[in-house]
Amino acid sequence: MSAELRRKISSEMDLRRVVLESTRYSQEAGFDEAPSRMIATAVSELGRNILKYAGSGEFLLRHVKRPSGRGIEMQVSDHGPGINDTEQAMQDNFSSGGTLGLGLPGVKRLMDEFTLESSPGKGTRITARKWI
């Protein structure tokens, strides 16, 4: 089983690569086709937010264990403008960019666990897990 996957995301090309690598990583971790695509889609959503709002950020994917089984955890962080109202950002159809929103409620549904930490002016960190 491969070690953690740690990448910097600062361009569309980086994002593409991370999405592909995440798919492979999830499949190697034991996820089936559909859930591994869901994980990759979550990565794509979060990575796109980094590019849109922060310019660049860090991505980490790793294996996690709990008594009832295994899974993976992703951590996506940036030093961008942060999110003023995290509660509002978790509501469907909320957008601060006047476009499609941050897609965070969608990412939460794609994954099993989801944590959003953000302080305005300092940055944002999202941690999400999915269990097999």
Partner: peptide, 14 residues
């Protein structure tokens, strides 16, 4: 549309 793509799109409520 691939199954994984469909699952993800529906979960994201597009």
């Amino acid at each position: 549309l691939q199954p994984g793509v469909v699952s993800a799109l529906i979960e994201m409520d597009v």
